[in-house]
Design a protein around this nucleic acid. Structure first.
Length: 305
DNA sequence: GGAATAACCTGGATGC
DNA sequence: TGCATCCAGGTTATTC
């Protein structure tokens, strides 16, 4: 499932082909891939294509799991996208066969690479694209990774910066942890507090920090909170270096290739296998409509009050 | 207002 | 073999 490392791999892969290019054609094959654009009237597909036609693409930017591509229009708009659970952004040759779950195909012309097909494919249709206005960031820092301007897609403006962003506010995270009795994992998954972290890397960071996912956030010491943040950064950095985590065909880079970090996971998806640290079996537990994976020995459950 | 939960969705795995 | 059910989980709307 695409989290920060996977989305960054996609952004970095798209940038050379898209930045500096101009949109030559837009095909919307499934309007469900435009749910984020649905506010633009009764024909979101037609509106999306019309607004995008002829636009230049200025940069490829990411904050957390959101991607956006500022356009040359004087209106200050961008194409904003979220991959959801199974979205893919692929680069293909013009006229290449349709991908199995292809939803949108945007043909761009790049001054060096010529015509390139930018394909949005998505099995579960939780992902979406939209034309979106750019708005000023609240702190004056660059809106995301890939663009120095203090602008952010409006649909991504409500989420916090991600932990790899130089402008990430460590103190704000510690304060957020200190003011809620919610489980620490729930806070890590709250994109308004810290963006880019999903179920996989939350489990991995908490395992590395030896903190049980159900620990009430406000019960954490400052030292433990700092350790969790350090481990979040470490696991995201390692995963990024290995091209992200691929369990199946749901996550691939822009060329359709899988990442390697699944081999480096210590807890996530390893139910029943020995903990790499102590040898006790990794346990899986239901958590907020999904699962947590942890070592019951290394990560002690919080005491019930 | 904060916190928890349901809904959205497809396809692979599993059980009968 | 075929059908039903479960599961994966990011975001957002709804409910408490």
């Amino acid at each position: 499932m695409p989290e920060l490392p996977e989305v960054e791999v996609v952004r970095a892969g798209l940038a050379p082909a898209l930045v500096g290019s101009r949109v030559a054609d837009v095909e919307v094959l499934d309007a469900r891939a435009l749910t984020r654009h649905a506010a633009f009237g009764p024909d979101p597909a037609g509106d999306f294509a019309a607004r995008l036609a002829g636009q230049g693409i200025l940069s490829a930017v990411r904050r957390g799991k959101f991607l956006w591509f500022p356009l040359s229009s004087p209106a200050g708009e961008c194409v904003v996208g979220h991959l959801g659970m199974s979205g893919q952004m692929l680069l293909r040759a013009p006229g290449a066969p349709r991908e199995r779950h292809e939803r949108i195909r945007i043909l761009v012309e790049h001054p060096s690479h010529g015509l390139v097909a930018w394909v949005f494919a998505d099995q579960r249709t939780f992902g979406s694209l939209a034309i979106d206005p750019l708005v000023a960031t609240g702190d004056g820092a660059p809106g995301g990774f890939g663009d120095d301007r203090a602008l952010v897609a409006s649909q991504a403006a409500h989420i916090a910066r991600d932990p790899l962003d130089p402008a990430f506010d460590d103190l704000a995270l510690r304060r957020a942890l200190a003011r809620t009795s919610s489980a620490v994992k729930r806070v890590l998954l709250d994109q308004r507090v810290v963006s880019g972290v999903g179920n996989i890397y939350a489990d991995e960071a908490l395992w590395a920090a030896r903190v049980h996912p159900e620990t009430p956030a406000r019960a954490l010491s400052t030292r433990a909170a700092n350790r969790i943040l350090a481990e979040v950064r470490a696991v995201l950095t390692r995963a990024l270096a290995e091209g992200g985590t691929s369990f199946d065909a749901q996550y691939v880079n822009v060329n359709g290739q899988a990442g390697y970090f699944a081999r480096s996971l210590q807890a996530y998806g390893r139910t029943g296998e020995p903990c790499p640290r102590c040898g006790r079996p990794i346990r899986r537990a239901a958590f907020a409509n999904r699962s947590s994976h942890f070592c019951p020995a290394c990560q002690r459950a919080p005491r019930v009050a």
